[in-house]
Design a protein around this nucleic acid. Structure first.
Lengths: 256, 256
DNA sequence: ATGGTGGATGTGGTCGGACCACTATGGCGG
DNA sequence: CCGCCATAGTGGTCCGACCACATCCACCAT
């Protein structure tokens, strides 16, 4: 009775763990190319189908990258690669958890802004100012949102912690920002946002970490407080819609 | 010229987005059961293979849960479910990124500990003390590590922000802690750790947020500083090992 | 009637093979 | 010498079959 097959969990799950372990142990390095799906399947003693599921899983996790016609490669395993999935959390969260997410963002971004105030270079500051001005120079909500995101991203990047930047990035994912900001901005908060951004910018110019921390915390806190107040109002939920039925097929089940 | 097939990216990727969107729009609620893989494949106009890859991807992301013989279900979509993948980042990170991760943890955990100091109940405090005492009552490193983790987990939980707790949990994942703590503890840091934990506990009892923040920050900061110093020493890397070759096949490539 | 039990059914899990779409390589012809 | 294109190799997709497990219900013994 040999121990060739530990037999725990699905074969796919096992394959995922094996690849992960191999990377963790350094037997697979960033950027390196893996054997073909067919080879991998043979080596791990599973079918190509199962192997593909494992690869797909590691792909969405940002660990592997499959290039059609070329091969499978290990990503650079940088913070951005691995934390890309963080955005999913923001996208799928609703209700109280949105407030929690903003709270986390307030904590991280205020600290990051403080760090940035201490370390930011003239080049980085120029980049921040570019977006600040662009944001104040237009009335198009889409463009404002874009530069708003870029403004904060540039600041957090100046803090020098890529991991933190990647997390904050996820917390400010496009759809998340759009969902929350939309309502917030519609209440004529443009002017207030402008003032808050100005305060943050001032703190950066003055290289004043504490002022920067306070300004950033207040900035996010404003939205957080607004969202909190909204939570008590929203009790009506829309739960309509059926499956897309791309070909206009008939729907058999009520919900499906 | 019908627009039935937008044709962007792989069909699997499209399926993933569709399911995610359906959940995001509330057409799929937590705990709800999905149609069978075969049905889903038909409805989305793809093969079961591709559908399975999409499901597998959403499974590892903590969005779906497949129960053999029963069906596919949407998870509760709680912070813990979705942030489970966060541990992967900690597991696969090395070098400078480990320091960055600890820095993030220091920021979040110090704030969480401060919040806990203000809000913690007697029951929660009792739970914290239980692990504190258990940790001081043994010499088994494994057991100490376990209660160490539980100690901090209980504190962060008392802060009342599940999302934050889940993130910190990921940053303190078993393998991560084991990797970093091992070396740290071997330097006879037990006594120091004990004192720091005592200070954190005192601050909680006193309901003193600022003291709690400082104590927690110092605690993590200690490890952070130690790790930072280690970074400059480690320059030798082990890069040996080939593929397991379960059937003792010959190895053709050098690394593979 | 009751309560266990075993088979039928439905579901996810795995496998193997086939073919398509794309890349990359190298030889051929200009 | 350069550029084009046939070709081999790789990931992407699909199909059909079978297995392992969960669930449910009719059937049987009590």
């Amino acid at each position: 009775m040999d121990e060739t097959a530990p037999q725990k969990g699905t074969v796919t799950q096992r394959a995922i763990e094996q690849i992960k372990a191999m990377i963790g142990e350094g037997r697979l390095e960033p950027g390196q190319r893996l054997p073909t799906e067919r080879d991998l399947a043979t080596r791990l003693g599973i079918s190509r189908s199962s192997m593909r599921e494992a690869i797909r899983a590691l792909t969405v996790l940002g660990v592997l990258e499959a290039r059609h016609g070329s091969g499978i490669y290990v990503t650079q395993l940088e913070a951005g690669d691995l934390l890309e999935t963080f955005g999913v959390v923001a996208d799928l969260s609703r209700g109280p958890r949105l407030v929690e997410l903003l709270e986390v963002r307030r904590i991280l971004e205020s600290t990051a802004t403080a760090l940035a105030a201490a370390r930011i270079t003239v080049e980085q500051l120029a980049d921040v100012e570019k977006h600040l001005e662009a944001m104040n120079a237009t009335d198009d909500p889409e463009e404002i949102l874009f530069h708003d995101l870029a403004f904060h991203r540039a600041i957090v990047a100046a803090a020098g912690n890529e991991t933190m930047a990647a997390i904050v990035e996820g917390l400010s994912s496009r759809t998340f920002r759009a969902r929350v900001w939309r309502g917030y901005q519609e209440e004529g908060a443009f002017e207030r946002t402008r003032r808050e951004h100005a305060r943050i910018h001032r703190a950066l110019v003055d290289h004043d970490p504490e002022a920067a921390r306070a300004a950033a915390a207040a900035h996010v806190g404003e939205v957080e407080a607004w969202l909190r107040s909204q939570m008590e109002v929203r009790n009506e939920v829309q739960r309509s819609g059926t499956w897309g039925a791309a070909s206009s097929d008939r729907v058999e089940h009520s919900a499906w």
